[in-house]
């Protein structure tokens, strides 16, 4: 590894440490805002998280190109369905999502210091990956949030895909949208894994592309259509992933 990637990694780590330390001041501030206005407190948590994510992405030297933002329908809650290859799907992606978007993430992240705390505060949902009952509860919670106008971001592959392409999508996670008939907006991340996991533990600057695709209306879908949805969606994600992942001449 070159000197610069080591330096970059150290700077990023130092920043993460700094961000966590800031929690000592920021959590109490959030607490006082929450006593007055819950919505404002949530906005505050999201702002802090966005600030943290945005800075980490910038410090890795990566540039995020956001495409297809006009595909996000205005004035209604949508389910963002993304492909998942890296922590940077969240880090480089979340601050480009509209307010307010909740994240469905694995339960492990709930226990992550500071960042887990912020995520709880802006109503992220955590899922025990081996508990069916808890999974059903999560779907109900998510639907409740969406009815109140909150977007949800979920990575239906269930875990980070360790390689190229898009893995199989869990049908259950799409139930959040299909049952009440919300719209699904596929979002494709390219080159995120190449920032960190690919040459773990060093970070490397990359050109990340985040592309929103045309929304899929799930209201009025037949049983068969819903059954075919995971595969169809996977194909849509994969197609754009392959396109954005191609070598450009």
């Amino acid at each position: 590894m070159t000197f610069f990637s080591v330096l970059r990694t150290i700077i990023c780590l130092a920043y993460v440490g700094f961000f966590m330390l800031c929690g000592i001041v920021l959590f109490p501030i959030e607490f006082f805002i929450r006593r007055k206005d819950e919505k404002k407190a949530m906005r505050f948590s999201v702002t802090v998280t966005n600030w943290g994510f945005r800075c980490v992405t910038a410090l890795t030297g990566s540039k995020v190109t956001v495409k297809g933002k006009k595909n996000i329908p205005a004035g209604e809650a949508v389910l963002f369905v993304g492909n998942h290859r890296s922590y940077f799907d969240l880090i480089a992606g979340y601050y480009n999502l509209p307010f307010h978007t909740s994240i469905v993430s694995k339960a492990g992240l709930k226990k992550a210091p500071v960042i887990g705390g912020w995520m709880k505060r802006f109503k992220c949902l955590f899922i025990e990956q081996n508990s069916l009952r808890q999974g059903m509860q999560m779907i109900k919670d998510a639907q409740e949030l969406m009815k109140n106008g909150t977007n949800i971001l979920i990575f239906p592959e269930g875990t980070r895909n360790k390689g190229e392409g898009v893995g199989e999508l869990h049908a259950g996670s799409l139930k959040i949208a299909t049952k009440p008939g919300f719209k699904i907006v596929p979002v494709v991340f390219t080159n995120t894994r190449e920032i960190f996991e690919k040459q773990f533990p060093w970070v490397k600057p990359q050109k990340v592309t985040m592309e929103f695709l045309a929304p899929i209306d799930t209201s009025g879908m037949t049983r068969e259509e819903i059954k075919a949805l995971p595969d169809a969606l996977r194909k849509i994600l994969l197609e754009t992933f392959e396109k954005n992942n191609s070598i450009v001449i």
């Binding site: 440490g17 700094f18 992550a112 210091p113 960042i115």
Partner: peptide
């Protein structure tokens, strides 16, 4: 403390 926290975050994922 900072180093500990940072290490913690790295170890956790």
């Amino acid at each position: 403390k900072a180093i500990f926290l940072a290490a913690g975050l790295i170890a956790l994922p």
